[in-house]
Simulated assay, not measured.
Amino acid sequence: MTHIVVLGSTNMDLVTYVEKAPQRGETVTGREFRTIPGGKGANQAIAAARAGATVSMIGAVGNDAYGTRLRSTLEDSGVDTDLLRTVEGPSGTAHIVVDDEGGNSIVVISGANGTVDHLVLGDDGLIASADALLLQLEIPLAAVLAGARAARAHGVRTILTPAPAQPLPLELFAATDLLVPNEHEAATLTGRTDPRSAAVALLDEVPEVVVTLGAAGSLYAARGADPLTVPAPQVTAVDSTGAGDTFVGALAVALAEGRPMRSALAWAGAAAALSVQRPGASASMPCRPEIEAQFTS
């Protein structure tokens, strides 16, 4: 079975649902509040596990009630947590406002994730055993770079989600096989607002790029090939939180299983389309039979 390793964040998502998000200085009344396990790392791990892979998680939770719940949610989803550290202090949190159009705004507090600034005993060997390593930017950049170096040394495909967007060192680009930004992150990295132009520009740094375009689908670019756009299923969004992570987790599984890129993008798009029709991040992620049914419909 395909083995995916995720090096990244775990957060408890504190989600408020409102008709319209408040502007600066404005107070609005929300209609519902939920605590939902999330974090870009944990989300991608759960998405990949539900899509059919064997998944292992490297990261950290705090020694608080959120940490206990985050660990159990990963384990209940089939994710191996043997190398998920428990550290003194609070777990990471993400404070999320979701409006009636399914849009969201997010503030992340690192908590325990901030302690993941290097690899520890066992991490390198686990990465070496993987078919792909998934990375994001919600843990210190030093650990992201260490993970990418380890994957490169062992010939493991590295898939990086550059979120939250920030300038990246050339060494990290050089150790990345596939970069998966959304259109806003691609613009931040390149200064180009057109996704196609941004994707092409990023090929100066990495061999393959997938820019996610929300409801419009995804755009793939690779050195020596024409860019490819794959549309997404048209659905009514309830909550887009975690949709990008669902896409990346499913895409990693599809590619590791040997699907051609166009098919892999369509399969990942089907998974993301299912996730936006449900509230929450990890709670909304579909299982493999659902993805297959959406993909073939």
Rank of each mutant, 00 (worst) to 15 (best):
I4C: 11
V6N: 00
L7C: 00
T10L: 15
N11V: 01
M12V: 15
T16V: 15
T16K: 02
V18G: 10
K20T: 05
P22M: 06
P22A: 12
R24Y: 14
R24N: 06
E26C: 14
E26V: 12
V28E: 01
T29G: 09
T29N: 09
E32S: 15
F33N: 07
R34F: 02
G39N: 04
K40A: 06
K40P: 02
K40W: 03
N43D: 04
Q44A: 05
I46M: 07
I46Q: 03
A49Q: 01
A49S: 13
I58T: 02
A60H: 05
N63E: 11
N63I: 01
Y66C: 12
S72M: 10
T73L: 03
L74K: 14
E75H: 07
G78M: 04
V79A: 10
T81D: 03
L83M: 06
L84K: 02
T86M: 14
V87E: 08
T93G: 04
A94V: 02
A94M: 11
H95Y: 14
I96G: 01
V97S: 14
G102S: 11
G103E: 05
S105C: 14
V107S: 08
V108P: 08
V108G: 02
I109C: 12
S110G: 13
G111H: 02
N113S: 06
T115M: 11
H118E: 13
L119C: 10
L119V: 05
V120Q: 06
V120R: 15
G122Q: 08
D123S: 09
D124H: 08
D124K: 15
L133R: 04
L134N: 01
L135R: 04
I139M: 01
L141A: 08
L141K: 09
L141R: 03
L145M: 12
A146R: 11
A146G: 10
A150S: 13
A151F: 05
A151R: 05
A153F: 08
A153T: 13
G155W: 04
V156D: 00
V156C: 01
L160W: 03
T161F: 05
T161V: 13
P162V: 05
P164S: 07
Q166L: 13
P167M: 08
P169R: 14
E171F: 12
F173A: 00
A175Q: 02
T176K: 07
T176A: 01
D177Y: 05
P181K: 02
N182Q: 12
R192D: 00
R196P: 04
A198F: 03
V200A: 07
L202D: 00
L203A: 00
V206I: 11
P207R: 04
V211K: 07
L213G: 04
A215E: 09
A216H: 15
A216D: 09
G217K: 11
S218A: 15
Y220F: 15
A221G: 13
A221F: 00
A222P: 15
P227R: 04
P227G: 09
P227W: 05
P227A: 14
T229Y: 06
T229G: 08
V230L: 13
P231D: 00
P233N: 10
T241V: 04
F247K: 13
A250G: 07
A252K: 07
A254H: 14
L255M: 05
E257R: 15
G258C: 14
R262S: 07
L265I: 10
A272S: 15
A273V: 15
L274H: 08
Q277H: 13
P279G: 05
G280N: 03
C287I: 09
R288M: 08
R288V: 01
E292C: 08
E292V: 15
